[in-house]
């Protein structure tokens, strides 16, 4: 059973970034990540500036460097892939520590590692400074349909319960000596997934009843709406403004 997933990344702290309205943070993070993604890989100095910006962000937001590093594990498989590229790639070969590798492959490797790490770090700071319901409310304010964010809200609310329940089913199976090693022994697991689906569905019906009992008529009340001030938009715009400026200069320079 995987774990990491069921726990949101939120770090309970009070920082200027925590207090920004969620929609400006989401918009800022996405714009910044895109400008990083567009930045030409040859402009190493640009990535150095991005890294400094991220470090400042981590500092101001108080999410902590240790937290950032442990959460970056998610991108490791891709970084592993990136490290292999220089060895398999074609093109002009150069010697690094006595090993012949592809120059172009080295660049490709650097490109994926740099962009994936900066992108993931930005996401981690965003998720680390914004509570999940606020993230959803922020998406809402950015014109993501309510239908979409409402469903996401219910998903997050009930995910923990379902994961716990699956854990209990697994414990019950293990306690009766079930230790499958091959795919054809997986039937009890699949059957429990089926049972889990039925239970989830029935819970959905009961939750709906509980909502209707309190006057629900198809529209979720918007209880977390917060309209940002111009000042807050400007604060949040600092990061993407930096990103876009650096990216443009890098594009022109290379």
């Amino acid at each position: 059973m995987g774990t990491g997933h069921a726990h949101a990344l939120y770090v309970h702290e009070h920082s200027p970034i925590h207090h920004l309205p969620p929609q400006v943070k989401i918009a800022g993070a996405v714009a910044f990540i895109f400008s990083v993604a567009i930045t030409p890989r040859e402009a190493m100095w640009a990535f150095a500036i991005y890294a400094v910006a991220i470090a400042a962000l981590v500092r101001i937001s108080k999410v902590g460097f240790g937290f950032l590093l442990t959460r970056l594990i998610g991108v490791l498989p891709f970084i592993a892939f990136a490290f292999l590229i220089p060895f398999i790639a074609s093109g002009e070969q150069v010697d690094v520590l006595g090993i012949s590798v592809s120059r172009d492959g080295l660049w490709a490797s650097w490109n994926i590692i740099a962009k994936a790490t900066i992108g993931a770090s930005t996401s981690i700071v965003l998720a680390g400074t914004t509570e999940v319901p606020d993230l959803l409310a922020g998406m809402n304010r950015l014109r993501v349909p309510t239908l979409f964010t409402s469903i996401a809200g219910f998903m997050i609310r009930y995910l923990g319960l379902i994961v716990d329940e699956i854990g209990r089913m697994r414990t019950a199976m293990t306690s009766r000596g079930y230790d499958p090693r091959w795919l054809w022994q997986a039937k009890p697991i699949a059957a429990s997934a089926g049972a889990m689906f039925i239970r989830s569905y029935e819970r959905g019906e009961r939750v709906h009843d509980a909502m209707v009992a309190r006057g629900y008529q198809g529209e979720m009340p918007e209880l977390r709406r917060r309209d940002p001030s111009v000042q807050e938009w400007l604060t949040a715009a600092a990061l993407p403004a930096l990103g876009i400026t650096v990216m443009v200069i890098a594009m022109v320079a290379t």
């Binding site: 509980a210 629900y216 008529q217």
Partner: peptide, 18 residues
Amino acid sequence: DQLFMPTVGEDVAFGPAN
């Protein structure tokens, strides 16, 4: 089944908000 909102306060507010 009854507590479906992110916090208890929002759950209590759900009905009167409707």
